[in-house]
Nucleic acid binder design. Structure first.
Lengths: 195, 195
DNA sequence: CCAGGAATTCTAGCAGCGCTAGCACAACTG
DNA sequence: CAGTTGTGCTAGCGCTGCTAGAATTCCTGG
């Protein structure tokens, strides 16, 4: 019994070690530097050990993505709590979202850009992911107009944030005017829709 | 003289052949199927020939992206011309944009998602790219509020469209409600901004 | 028409990728 | 302490983008 639990604990610890190493490597040098060989060296085990914990590289990235979702959810919540009115709250959450994406680009990519081994738009999506979306929704819902579906409106606002972040990060949009674009986006969502 | 021009013509033809083959392969089987070996086989030359035309795979993708920009610009213009009022025009252009992205996902990825060997937010950006942006801008500008910078507003609306497209394509958003999300986005941009 | 030189294309290979079969060793059990 | 179980390693497969250098083709001048 005790031996069994010790082994399980050790396995869990090593699994966490893998995820942490992957995340740190990705944040330090980008996901293209995260190879299974490099990762194996980092945790001081051989390559095949990785595959006894995860189905493949995508599954490791998915684990990192889930961690990222939890952190983002927490940051969105903090920003939301600190803000006062409906509009200020949405602005604060939007700001917190894009700030997170810019501060932790590798994490953000795993969550929302790269192909990853995770269910998304289904009830089986990871809890952390649903929490992050719920935070966004809590900020969007109060500014929804009469007929607007709050879920769809949240998805649409989210898309706006995501577009800003990804176009900027891939060099399609200049970094400089980010704050002003974000204001424009939030401003148009807090206005009354005309149809 | 004649020999010289013939050679140049043949080179240009072969270059076009490469770009076309890359594009068709990408559209048929996705960019991950476009390997330099596969591409070389397709054009019935050996691999190194590719590198006598392009600096690398990214440069080939960039050439495909430029083609895509030209086509998108044309489609946006067509949609714009067919629409009547300011709001209808913006809606039509947004619709044309997302329709293009969904109909030609590989082309869209080369243009706006994948890392590619192109200058973007600078005056040296390819003409086709600038034309596509100009089409978007022509549709956005008429609905800009007093103080809004039309360029920034266009970038922001573009980000919204891009976010919708990429989140949907990567499975983060369900396909079903796309039209309604697009309406929400366009609706909020054609409304008066409240600040 | 043919030899020499220049340009072009190909063969072969490098270093690295994700992933895995099968062996060797370590750890636990009776 | 012997035997069995299971864990981790070595080695290697088939692929990637890319390139050095050999081989071949083509054009030019005699």
């Amino acid at each position: 019994m005790s031996i069994q639990t010790r082994k399980e604990r050790e396995r869990a610890e090593r699994e966490a070690l893998i995820v942490t190493a992957a995340r740190e490597l990705a944040e330090a040098e980008g996901w293209e530097a995260v190879t299974t060989r490099r990762l194996a060296a980092e945790i001081e085990y051989s390559q095949p050990v990785l595959y006894s914990h995860f189905k493949g590289k995508e599954a490791i990235m998915a684990a990192v993505a889930v961690q990222g979702c939890a952190e983002m959810a927490a940051e969105l919540r903090t920003a939301s709590r600190a803000a006062k009115g409906k509009r200020e709250t949405l602005a604060a959450v939007g700001e917190a979202y894009t700030a997170f994406a810019r501060r932790r680009p590798a994490l953000y990519d795993a969550m929302f850009t790269l192909r990853v081994d995770l269910p998304f738009a289904t009830p089986e999506a990871p809890a952390a992911l649903q929490e992050a979306f719920a935070e966004l929704r809590a900020a969007v819902e109060p500014i929804a107009a009469e007929g607007d579906d709050p879920g769809l409106l949240t998805e649409t606002y989210w898309a706006g944030l995501h577009g800003l972040v990804t176009l900027m990060r891939s060099g399609r949009l200049p970094e400089g005017a980010h704050e002003r674009r974000l204001e424009l986006l939030t401003g148009h969502f807090t206005a009354e829709a005309s149809r």
